[in-house]
């Protein structure tokens, strides 16, 4: 199951992580080089999150025949935790309690159960369970609780949380059941490629913004996101994606194009979640979790990029 391509991809990532980790530690203990310590701290926290991501994904891949199920379970747990963070920071009322119970205990596990059973087999249910059935169920259940105050607003918040944290993210493990001719048994590498590019894009946009950033896109929402960072990030992510074409079923140009789309969607995700955070007046979704950025802060770009990546790949390679 671990062929040369997978090994090179994973090995390359491990090498980069090792370099980044030692760099982070060096920066941490050399104080007189004029870099903001908060920045170094953020960098080190992000690297730690990557190690965690990498270890969990690698462990899930290594389980052999059970690896697909294990990977889906990992994404289920991430979704569940992200949804906890989302709803925790969203003011809900007592009347939403029963609806929330359904959201957490029924709809979230059910969506991932469908992914386990196979998105190719249960494709229709996979795509409508949350956007249609949960969409209709939530307002009805809230209405039955009898509290009409700010009704539409409360319902919309629960729906948004479920869509972003669960529905959109579930497209990432769904990549594992894409039936691409000539690429059977290698979907795990495609998923790894996707997660890698999204994470790289986050960093590249940040780095370009720090280096060249002049024109801030929306100062009220995120003072660190600039047009220069955005464009630099998209360009360099596309280059890296193209250079990694051998890990995917794409040719070089397709890989570059899809990477550009991933970069744009990743940016959109980060921007959207920043807007929500600003509205709630917090820095991180993990505010209630001491000492960590939230899970949602790490996966916001994945949530936005996953459905588009899935659909593009499917459109290009899977016969209808």
């Amino acid at each position: 199951m671990f062929d040369v391509r997978t090994l090179s991809l994973v090995g390359g990532v491990l090498a980069i992580l090792l370099v980044a980790t030692s760099l982070g530690q060096r920066l941490k203990y050399s104080r007189d080089i004029g870099i903001n310590p908060a920045l170094v701290e953020a960098f080190n926290l992000r690297i730690r999150a990557w190690w965690l991501m990498c270890t969990v994904l690698a462990a899930a891949f290594l389980l052999g025949p059970a690896s697909r199920v294990a990977t889906v379970i990992v994404f289920f747990l991430i979704s569940f935790w992200a949804l906890r963070e989302f709803i925790t920071l969203t003011p809900t009322r007592l009347g939403d309690h029963r609806a929330l119970f359904w959201v957490f205990i029924v709809f979230t596990p059910l969506q991932y159960l469908i992914v386990v059973l196979g998105v190719e087999t249960y494709g229709l249910l996979f795509s409508v369970l949350i956007p249609v059935y949960a969409f209709l169920f939530i307002p009805a259940r809230v209405a039955m609780a009898g509290d009409y105050k700010r009704f539409l607003e409360r319902v919309a918040k629960i729906q948004a949380g479920l869509m972003i944290c669960v529905y959109c993210l579930s497209y990432a493990p769904a990549i594992l059941s894409l039936q691409i001719p000539g690429f059977e048994g290698q979907q795990a590498r495609l998923l790894f490629f996707f997660v890698l590019l999204v994470q790289l894009n986050d960093v590249l946009q940040f780095a370009w913004g720090k280096l060249l950033g002049r024109s801030v896109i929306a100062p009220a929402i995120s003072p660190s996101r600039t047009w220069e960072g955005f464009l630099g990030g998209v360009a360099s992510t596309s280059l890296i994606g193209a250079a990694l074409w051998w890990a995917t079923p794409f040719d070089v140009w397709q890989a570059a194009g899809i990477s550009a789309v991933i970069a744009v969607m990743g940016f959109a995700g980060g921007m959207t979640m920043s807007a929500i955070k600003r509205d709630r007046g917090v820095e991180d979704y993990g505010t209630l979790v001491v000492g960590h950025g939230g899970v949602l802060d790490r996966i916001d770009s994945i949530c936005f990029a996953a459905p588009v990546f899935y659909h593009l790949t499917r459109f290009l390679f899977v016969a209808p």
Partner: peptide, 21 residues
């Protein structure tokens, strides 16, 4: 104790697993 009233409010018997502090 923060947010536990949303995990299990008065009069409810099923908890919703939010985060608390």
């Amino acid at each position: 104790i923060e947010n536990l009233n949303r995990v299990l409010p008065r009069g409810e018997f099923l908890p919703v697993p939010l985060l608390s502090l």
